[in-house]
Amino acid sequence: MSSSQAESQVNASRSSATSLYSTLFSVFRRELRIAFRQQSDMINPILFFLMVVTMMPLGISPQASVLSELAPGLLWVIALLACLLSLDGLFRSDYEDGTLEQCILSTQPLYFIVLAKVMVHWLTTGLPLTLVAPLLGVLLSLPTDGFVPLWLSLMLGTATLSFVGAIGAALTVSLRKGGLLLSLIIMPLYVPVLIFGASTVRYAVEGVAYGSTLAVLGGFFALAFVLAPLAIAGALRMSVEE
């Protein structure tokens, strides 16, 4: 191989790396801008979270002793449902106006475009839910030891929920009434995250070290972060083909 050839190859790989980075960055910025323009999409999951939490004392009992016992599980289940409901619109508008088709046709790998989209979804739904969760913990008289673990576990857990849920959103994007179906197919896949998320908080409340369950949540996140975009990209290709 001549030196000029080698040089051009190095240049090509370098430029593809930079263009990959710029793709990630530009999709990221675009999605964030859209999210901040449609603020209701960001606020609605939080309102849902708040309202369902309010239902719990009304439906079960306003007694602090009862609520504090149930708080870790309740907060986690409701946060999970709020995440699930926010997923329906993840690819919808991009699908309807043809942006998705362009993403698939573009020379950049769909994997990274999807990755950026899902990360923004987490930033605009999972993260706000995590931030308000301790506040709702006060409403459900969660013991003070549980606040930091609730925060940490939701932070890691909702990211996994966004990645796994996006698979369902990609599969159902071409369906007119995908919302309920999306919940049905994704909820069984959420079971491990729920188990370890709620357990982290419960461990902390009971005074047991919760590092191990948090580590498992981190493992789930790493797995979902790497593998889920593959499935999402495949599902989006299939949805657009139809």
């Binding site: 796994v164 698979i167 599969l171 071409s174 197919i185 069984p188 896949l189 079971v191 491990p192 188990i195 370890f196 789930f220 593998l227 499935a231 495949g234 599902a235 299939m238 949805s239 083909e241 139809e242």
Partner: peptide, 24 residues
């Protein structure tokens, strides 16, 4: 389309079944 969608979901489930089983 239904075939492909179900195949993708089944494969995702396959990755998940051991995790679900161990978690439970």
């Amino acid at each position: 389309t239904a075939n492909k969608a179900c195949a993708i979901l089944a494969l995702v489930g396959t990755v998940n079944i051991p995790i679900i089983y161990k978690s439970v």
